[in-house]
Design a protein around this nucleic acid. Structure first.
Length: 891
RNA sequence: GGUCUUAUAGCUCAGUUGGUUCAGAGCACCUGCCUUACAAGCAGGGGGUCCUAGGUUCGAAUCCUAGUGGGACCACCA
């Protein structure tokens, strides 16, 4: 059957994925083999595939497919994350579109909608991963909120509570006024912003009207209304919450304010001036307004000096009743308005442009409000301690290692983790409040009731008397158990699966979640399994567009991965991703790389077309083919060795490039040309068999990178058993190879290239054959190959008196090759060329001689280095002599 | 402000303990070819002050110092 000259991936990808699934090649059960385990970083359940996922999952698939083909029991566990805030926000939006407010629904009703949404959109991303070729064991698909995982989360919460590591209290937390929930520190992203610094007048209360000029250095502001202090603030809308003004006691310019009281502008409340060294004398005017309810540092001052805390914001970021003014208006509207009002009242001294950093919610992208509230916290000191050393001493290896620093830095400065969220979509906190106050923590209602009875001494309590905490847990409080909970290690400690698959082998993820997820998994791993959760962590880069911008929806610079797959094939896209993705570096993605991937697929396809068209005949194996077969065997083994080295260092893009060159340059451009019979001529059986075997080996080496085309050709190469597949075949083990043979072939290639070069220069057709002479140590083993590929009719030693007539020479190492050319030589040109080379060699010789005449060099350098220089010297001298002789002859 | 990281061809990057394998690869580019597997191809070719300035050394892309320009993370700025 005639095959198309272009490979069409669409035809086969679906077919083979189906085949793999039907035969259960992805699934794994514990057995006697060495396990190799990866757990997927669970994508958001309602998310869609983006380029970051493509990169991440391609790498995981390459690793797991390779491990499988190395005979390990390879398991890649897929799953999704319930993504508390993100999903809840989506559901709230969707309901809003239908005119339903979350506040109009009961918790149960809302969760009903959320589950509907999850069922509808959940798993789309997993289907997309299948298009990419991901070899996940789909039967094991987990979800952070399914039964097993939920039970694990609750159990762990109770355990940590009972260990005294979880506590509840009022603290200043990051409040998201859109999602209406607290966030952890890690969920706040600080962004540079061009804002304004407002200078507000705080008049001194009970001013005597006269006042004194300040002592030297003091700045005393005074106008018709009296003396005043100036406070610089970026947030004038918070003045309603002011409860003090603070100066640095050592600040000379504000000495006059000591002990005074000042009046909050517009609000007209009188507040004290306090002194604390926290205040930066250099900043603004050295006067700080203290708003304990709305700033972390002010909160500390408030605690220290026992100041009143006035919470002027509602949860949604509007001004509360407590403010007394602007009630119900949005905080940013009020900022604008209050500046106008202050100005009109003569209370705004000036405005300045100012650059500062503002915290935004990672999920909803609204400005975070520091807010005092009652939350649940996990103490981190103990957990940080057990997680630090294993990474620092490389029990768990980071690739690239530079992230060890980042990791240590975070762990050494860690703060307690706020784990409660004022959301419904998530694991509800298993704390139950008693009617008379206090609470109990328990995994089930029954236990809770029992504990409540004990605690209250009231045996007649019923469930109806208990009220479960409304909050749910931070999403990461479930993700951090992922490598354990996927094997049910929390609920069934020491079960067969957790014993076999844990610790997992490699984790592939982005550095952006090193704190959110990686560090916390390590904590949970040691706390609950007493062992690391994974042995190696491969941090991918961020996928950027080709001019370096982060890919984002708003920029519209992110291609749809499925469109790419449709255009270039999954294999082509996988290769495109990997070509540009050294570990840890950001990758600049360019569709041109997918094109390169597609072209490579086509190259493989066409190599197959050639091979499958050969007719075998009972005939002797030509000398050239025999030598080619031997050589390629060595080449293959050497490359396998290189590949193993690259993989051991997680240099995956280099590994790919190595196979790429092996297939394209060595196999297609050289080997196949060497063994290829003339057009429509048959091939001998030995060569054909060897070639088919090599082809199969190459497909195996390529398979982890390009699963689809390799399966297609593996199956087409020869008749296979019913349930055979390349993906469960074994990679060849590295065997010894002969370096001398490899070197010899490199020399052979150079000679062939030299001859081709002369043809190109002189415009001689490849069909015109000629004789070749050489001087020097040429190993004759590959002569038949030279004859074939360079179209040379004979190879002989150059006669002592040279070649008759015109000729052309070139050097390959120390061997001088001469080709007689009847009428094609321009003597002058040749002489000129040779003279140029002599000039270069003489310059080279001078530098070598200089080195060798340097006594210090000869004395200090390693003997082999000196010997090398001597050899260089000798070689250069002999080359010069040869060239000079040739010039003489031409003259 | 602190910590870390990085600078090599037009682009993306390799370059291990300093020394013939040290100035490389892929892509892009230029020239010639529709040569019966492949123009998504074949054969050739050009291209770099290894960021700058010092230093160590017989010898530096490689080690040290400083500077400049990227990048990342952390902290803080009222």
């Amino acid at each position: 059957m005639e095959l198309a000259s272009k490979y069409n991936p669409a035809d086969i990808e679906q077919k083979w994925y189906q085949y793999w699934m039907e035969n259960g090649f992805f699934s794994s059960k514990p057995d006697g083999r060495e396990p190799y385990t990866i757990v997927i970083p669970p994508p958001n359940v309602t998310g869609v595939l983006h380029m970051g996922h493509m990169l991440n999952n391609t790498i995981q698939d390459i690793l797991v497919r390779r491990a499988r083909m190395m005979g390990k029991n390879a398991l890649w566990v897929p799953g999704t994350d319930h993504a508390s805030i993100a999903t809840e926000a989506k559901v709230v939006n969707k309901l809003a579109g239908e005119g339903i407010k979350k506040t109009d629904l009961t918790r149960e009703e809302f969760l009903g909608h959320a589950w509907d949404w999850t069922r509808k959109h959940g798993g789309i991303i997993l289907e997309q991963l299948k298009k990419l070729g991901a070899s996940c064991d789909w039967n094991r698909t987990g979800f952070t909120m399914d039964e097993v995982r939920s039970e694990s989360v609750i159990k762990v919460f109770c355990d940590l509570y009972n260990k005294g590591l979880i506590y509840r209290g009022v603290r200043m937390v990051n409040w998201d006024p859109k999602a209406l929930t607290a966030l952890s520190d890690e969920e706040v992203i600080y962004k540079e912003e061009n804002s304004k610094l407002y200078y507000l007048k705080y008049y001194v209360a009970e001013d005597d009207g006269k006042g004194e000029t300040g002592a030297e250095g003091e700045i005393v502001h005074r106008d018709a209304k009296g003396r005043y202090a100036v406070v610089a603030t970026t947030r004038p809308e918070t003045i309603m919450g002011d409860s003090a003004m603070c100066i640095n006691p050592k600040d000379p310019k504000n000495q006059w304010l000591k002990g005074k009281k000042v009046i909050v502008p517009l609000v007209n409340r009188v507040i004290p001036v306090i002194e604390d060294e926290y205040v930066d004398i250099e900043f603004g005017t050295g006067c700080l307004k203290v708003t304990p309810a709305h700033d972390v540092n002010d909160y500390m001052l408030g605690e220290k000096y026992n100041l009143q805390t006035i919470d002027i914001f509602n949860d949604n970021g509007t001004i509360s009743e407590a403010a007394g003014m602007y009630v119900g208006q949005d905080r940013f509207d009020v900022r604008k308005q209050i500046a106008i009002d202050l100005n009109n009242a003569g209370l705004l001294e000036k405005e300045e442009a100012y650059n500062n950093k503002v915290g935004y919610s990672e999920r909803t992208n609204v400005v975070i409000e520091p807010k005092l509230s009652m939350q649940w916290f996990l103490k981190m000191e103990h957990l940080a301690k057990i997680a630090l050393d294993p990474v620092m001493n490389d029990d768990i290896k980071f690739y690239p290692a530079k992230y060890k620093n980042t990791y240590r830095n975070w762990l050494e400065n860690i703060k307690d983790w706020c784990i409660s969220r004022q959301l419904w979509w998530g694991h509800r906190i298993p704390a139950y409040f008693l009617p008379q106050g206090g609470y109990v923590v328990a995994a089930t209602e029954e236990e809770a009731l029992k504990l409540a009875k004990e605690k209250s001494g009231n045996q007649s309590l019923t469930m109806a008397d208990l009220r479960q905490d409304e909050d749910c847990l931070d999403t990461w409080f479930s993700s951090w158990l992922w490598p354990i909970s996927l094997f049910d290690g929390i609920n069934n400690p020491g079960n067969e699966e957790i014993k076999y698959y844990y610790p997992t082998s490699d984790l592939v993820t982005g550095p952006d979640i090193i704190f959110f997820w990686v560090a916390r998994m390590i904590m949970a791993g040691y706390e609950y399994e007493g062992k690391m959760p994974f042995k190696n962590v491969y941090f991918t880069g961020i996928v950027r567009d080709k001019i370096g911008r982060k890919m984002s929806k708003s920029l519209g610079n992110s291609p749809d991965p499925l469109d790419l797959i449709a255009e270039y094939g999954a294999d082509g896209v996988r290769m495109g991703m990997m070509l540009s993705a050294p570990a840890g570096n950001d990758i600049k993605f360019d569709v041109a790389l997918c094109e390169q991937g597609r072209n490579f697929n086509n190259k493989i396809w066409n190599a197959f077309r050639l091979v499958q068209g050969w007719e075998v005949k009972d005939m002797e194996q030509p000398e050239s083919a025999k030598n080619a077969v031997k050589w390629f065997g060595h080449k293959l083994n050497k490359t396998i060795e290189e590949l193993e080295d690259h993989f051991s260092k997680y240099r995956i893009s280099e590994a790919l490039m190595t196979v790429y060159k092996l297939f394209w340059d060595e196999f297609s451009a050289w080997y196949l040309e060497m063994v290829k019979p003339a057009y429509q001529q048959p091939i001998d059986k030995a060569t054909l068999d060897a070639t088919l075997n090599y082809f199969e080996t190459l497909l195996k080496l390529l398979h982890p990178f390009m699963p689809f085309i390799t399966e297609e050709l593996y199956q087409a190469l020869k008749t296979r058993d019913a349930k055979d597949s390349i993906m469960v075949s074994l990679l060849p083990k590295k065997e010894d190879y002969c370096n001398k043979c490899l070197d010899r072939m490199e020399q052979t290639k150079e000679i062939i290239a030299g001859v081709r070069n002369i043809r190109a220069e002189k415009g001689i057709s490849p069909r015109e054959s000629f004789k070749l002479f050489y001087k020097g140590e040429l190993d004759a083993k590959n002569n038949s190959i030279i004859e074939k590929l360079a179209n040379v009719e004979s190879i002989d030693v150059t006669p002592a008196n040279g070649v008759d007539g015109a000729s052309q020479t070139f050097m390959v190492g120390t061997i001088e090759i001469t080709i007689p050319l009847a009428n094609n030589v321009n003597a002058e040109e040749e002489i000129k060329k040779m003279e140029e080379e002599i000039k270069y060699l003489e310059g080279f010789l001078i530098s070598v001689n200089k080195k060798l005449s340097n006594e210090k060099f000869v004395a200090n350098a390693k003997p082999e280095v000196v010997a090398n220089e001597r050899k260089k010297q000798a070689d250069a001298e002999s080359k010069i002599a040869t060239l000079k002789a040739n010039i003489e002859k031409l003259k």
